[in-house]
Each structure stands twice: as C-alpha cells, then as structure tokens.
Amino acid sequence: MAKVRVLMAKPGLDGHDRGVKVVARALRDAGMEVVYTGLHQTPEEIVEAAIQEDVDVVGLSILSGAHMTIIPRVNELLKENGAADIAVIGGGTIPEEDVLALKEGGWAKEIFTPGTPLETIVEWINSHLKTENN
C-alpha cells in the first residue's frame, strides 16, 4: 500500500509553529510522508504545493484568528484546481462555534483544537482515507 501523503501548512502571517511541527513529526513517526511548507504561506502557495506533492491530506495550522477566511479559501482553490479529493483538516485556537461552521460548510473535514492527543489525528487520517478508498 502506498504511503499516506500529507502537506502540513502554515498559512497567514502568524509564526506559531510549535503545533504544526509536533503534528508533522507525529504523522511522520506514524509512517506517513509529510511535507511541511514552512511559514507565511498564502492559500495559493499551499494549494500549488498540495497538487505538486500529490498529497491525500492538507493540514492547516492557524493561530491568528484568520481561520474563517483562510480555510474556506484553500478549499475553494482546491476545487477550482480539480483537487477537491484532497481532504482539508485544520488545527489551532479555533472556537467551537467556528469549528462547527467550518465542518458544516464543508470547508474542513475535521478541526483539531488544543489538547488533542497526537494519536487521535493519526487515527483520524488513517480511518478517513480508508473510508474514502472503499
């Protein structure tokens, strides 16, 4: 079976990369291929990298409060570029209300907020891709 490919991205202007790096490393330790974009990426740059790297999942880490702008934007750009099959997940300081809105709007498949065990993210990706592939 091919390895799961994940793009971990840090959109927007904030530089808080502790979370994104810890998650990237956990996914790598769980056997996934992980590409980390580095900081200050625009939605356009992220979508371009996701397509180029042919990933299954894009993880967006946002701690600047700009999630309601950025996550939908990445989603739209993926659709526009015929890559709607790439699952978008998010993480960061995102209030419950916005988590619901992002999921109900179909902009994010899942949002992981502070306190989430790393294993939960690994399991979510594995089981999501299993369902998708069946």
């Binding site: 202007l13 200050h40 409060g65 700009a66």
Partner: peptide, 18 residues
C-alpha cells in the same frame, strides 16, 4: 495585529482576514 507585526498595511492582500 499580525499585519502590523509583519510590516503590511491593512489593505495589503496578505493582510486579508487578519
């Protein structure tokens, strides 16, 4: 705010949403 911290004016495209 982040645009001020990163040296972008509020009407710069990178400031959108921030």
């Amino acid at each position: 705010d982040m645009p001020t911290i990163m040296g972008y004016d509020s009407d710069h495209p990178r400031s959108l949403g921030e």
